[in-house]
Design a binder for these strands. Structure first.
Lengths: 212, 212
DNA sequence: ACCTGAACACCGTTCAAGT
DNA sequence: ACCTGAACACCGTTCAAGT
């Protein structure tokens, strides 16, 4: 950055467009991103982006790929940072997801704006999502093995449910639903963490007959 | 329908535009709705809709109002239909929501397309949402009173969590995430009902010391 | 009071032509 | 190989003018 001269060939137009699209999404939301405006921000003509992306969706998908990479890393780090019990690691994954959505609302919005991206044509995006999903399910199985979650429940069902909860919570926050649910302004993070903690409590085995 | 003559004044253009917008949303998704195309479907000129709606968002919001009315009615009916225990009524609410989202995907998409509607300026929409929320919270309190849900948990927190789960599940289905979560095609309804049932099981008081 | 239709400032996308 | 810039078919929105 700064070393690139203004050549006729931009040098790294693709990335510049992805950056521009993200900047626009942060200001205006995903639906406010226009290819033309991204081109302007990158200092190229209106047709130039179509050398690098077949269409607008492909550009948005590239932003989503970057975003899902970030999320994946954050989740993986959170798992390593708190490895005392699987039950705690599970909560850490959920918290990492919620915090990431809070810290990077534009990324979160794009990832979940299924009408703006082409998830099927993006192996990177799919594998990023899968990675988080697998991390969750593995941790749930570990929690069942350590006895903190009842092994009678299906691990796949539990991870589907957890994901639905966490995603739903993040969306409710970003869409501004929380005030209607009795959450005071400024208290959103705590409320979501509490809701997550509640789910984890509900999942916790009541009769502590486990080996751990 | 049929009785209206083709007058210069359309007669009920407002409703015709709402219907047209919904039809377009069903075909193309909420983001595919254009005011001009809705006007065409209603047989009026491109400027006419702006006599009835200040802007596109207002039109989409009107569709969302209609949708939330439907949902509210469905949820209320479901509660009355299965009134044996509060725990069962709670599950019925969740199932009504999931089934409504399945049966009316266009409505569900518009209601949850927060970037396309103006929820703040619509009392009807807000009260529709509030009604479902209150119904849920009341039923949770009733379940706590009957002893099927532990009264130690906060009812507001529980209803926030339930809503996040149910909303998250409906979204995952509509956005086509379920295959990645091990749900076979055609099995989506059952999988979502199972996930909901799982949540309800988790919420159920383990030590059955309740009076019911 | 309600609708038309031209006008304006935008889009996404294509494609010959330039370097 | 990569970008320009005109062109095309769309938008949302406004507003004089019509009925």
């Amino acid at each position: 950055m700064g070393t690139e001269r203004e050549t006729y060939h931009h040098g790294n137009l693709r990335q510049a467009l992805v950056d521009a699209a993200l900047a626009l999404a942060a200001r205006l939301g995903p639906e406010g991103v226009s290819v033309r405006e991204a081109a302007r921000l990158a200092g190229v003509s209106s047709g130039a982006p179509f050398r690098h992306f077949p269409n607008r969706r492909a550009l948005m998908t590239a932003v989503a790929e970057e975003a899902s990479g970030h999320l994946r890393i954050k989740v993986q780090r959170s798992v390593r940072a708190s490895d005392r019990t699987a039950h705690r690691r599970l909560q850490a994954i959920g918290r990492a997801y919620l915090r990431w959505a809070e810290d990077h609302p534009a990324h979160f919005r794009i990832i979940s704006a299924r009408d703006q991206i082409d998830i099927d044509t993006s192996p990177g995006l799919q594998s990023g999502i899968q990675a988080v999903r697998e991390q969750t399910e593995e941790t749930i199985r570990a929690a069942q093995a350590e006895g903190s979650v009842d092994g009678a429940w299906d691990a796949g069902q539990l991870s589907l449910l957890s994901r639905a909860c966490v995603y739903g919570l993040a969306r409710m926050r970003i869409d501004g639903h929380l005030p209607q649910w009795g959450v005071a302004p400024g208290d959103e993070s705590r409320a979501l963490d509490d809701a997550l903690a509640l789910l984890l409590q509900l999942m916790r085995k009541q009769d502590q007959a486990g080996p751990a």
